[in-house]
Amino acid sequence: DQATDPSIPEENWECIQRFCEQVNAATEGPSLAPRLLAHKIQSPQEMEALHALTVLETCVNNCGQRFHNEIAKFRFLNELIKVLSPKYYGTWSSEKVKLRITEVLFSWTVWFPQEVKIRDAYQMLKKQGIVKE
């Protein structure tokens, strides 16, 4: 909650790092953290969602293979897709948050080409016209 405080526009890097450490320390960390982050990313508060995306990106680089395996699953990718899709939360999500999610997903297709589910999800979004270029 501290790391994604919507009332503070700047990133609280100390707090984000503490969160990553907690994820690494707790046995359930890598499986629980993606769910917590997905919930925040789906927040109607733009600033909270943007902060949560920063925490997500930081965790992907700092929280090890198990966390990585979880975010590469449809179970997590679907939660990001819901924010983009007009059939779910896309109509009321902010353009800024949707653009940021698209950028994160695209970067993952580049950095993790071996993750076929990420590629499938991104290609589906392009096919459905939800992701343009």
């Binding site: 499986s31 699953k73 449809f74 679907n78 007009p86 779910y88 589910k117 499938d120 589906m124």
Partner: peptide
């Protein structure tokens, strides 16, 4: 508890 290699998942959302 979640086994170390938990590869349970769901299908891709159809939108």
């Amino acid at each position: 508890t979640v086994s170390f290699h938990d590869d349970s998942d769901e299908d891709l959302l159809n939108v």
